[in-house]
Amino acid sequence: MAWEDSNLTRRDFIKLMGAAPASLAVNPKTGERRYAKLMDTFKCIGCRRCMSACKRWNKLPPYEVPETLVRDMDGTTYTVVNFVRSSRNGEIGKFLKWQCQNCIKPACAGVCPVTAITKNPVTGAVVIDETKCIGCRYCYQACPFKVPRFDFHKRITRKCHLCYDRIPKLKPACVAACPVEALDYGYRDLMLRKARVKAQLVRGYVLGEKEAGGTDVITILPAPPEEMGLIVAPQKIVSEDIDRLRISSTGFLAGAVLAGVLYLFSRGSGDKE
């Protein structure tokens, strides 16, 4: 591991190790250890083999590179690699592999009307059942990272599913294809530990630790996401059930008030049957 040849003190390291809350390390129901994917922008050389591997494994058509050269996910492109630069210091720039963050509490799954999206709490995969999706695109609206993309020909929403059909026995296709080990997949607590140590070393930022209440894709960024021009997700679970209930109830309250006003109006209008 990288910390062995670093100038990190033993105390620093123990501090880093101890900080992970237990609930994020294991599946609270079964006690199984959770998995996660790790992406290290400091190692990535931008070869985009992960993109190709993803296409191959999922049998997706080739990607058409846009004129702007900024690659964006689409209905048949689950992951993209782009060069991102810090807005504060132009010299800080890295290749970033981007995809669905496979949130621990996915907002997309919470809103899908037909339960087409499910989260595997052990392997981490958030999967859209392509035979169930009705193509309403509500998941896209709810996603704090704005990930799920509509496939205009299959008429369903698609996104990275962490190769749910490979893990945890095989690593996800992208991880297996990476020639420089910029990608990894393994127990989440280990991945997080690795990320924290590396971030400490390079003064980077660990994305996915707190964003959207924690995600099962962890990315080591050279700087915080807002500085790297990424969509900034709140550092809490997004669109929680209780919050949605609160919002719905105001509508029902308004309806009840309206009914009351109408009743009073009818009482006062002196034109009863």
């Binding site: 809103v111 009307p113 037909v114 999706c133 008429r155």
Partner: peptide, 24 residues
């Protein structure tokens, strides 16, 4: 018409409804 798959909507709102979804 906006939905990608209307026909599925009528099946899966009964087979696997998500009772926490506003759209449902």
């Amino acid at each position: 018409l906006h939905l990608g798959h209307v026909e599925r909507a009528f099946v899966y709102v009964y087979l696997s409804p998500n009772l926490k979804s506003g759209i449902l």
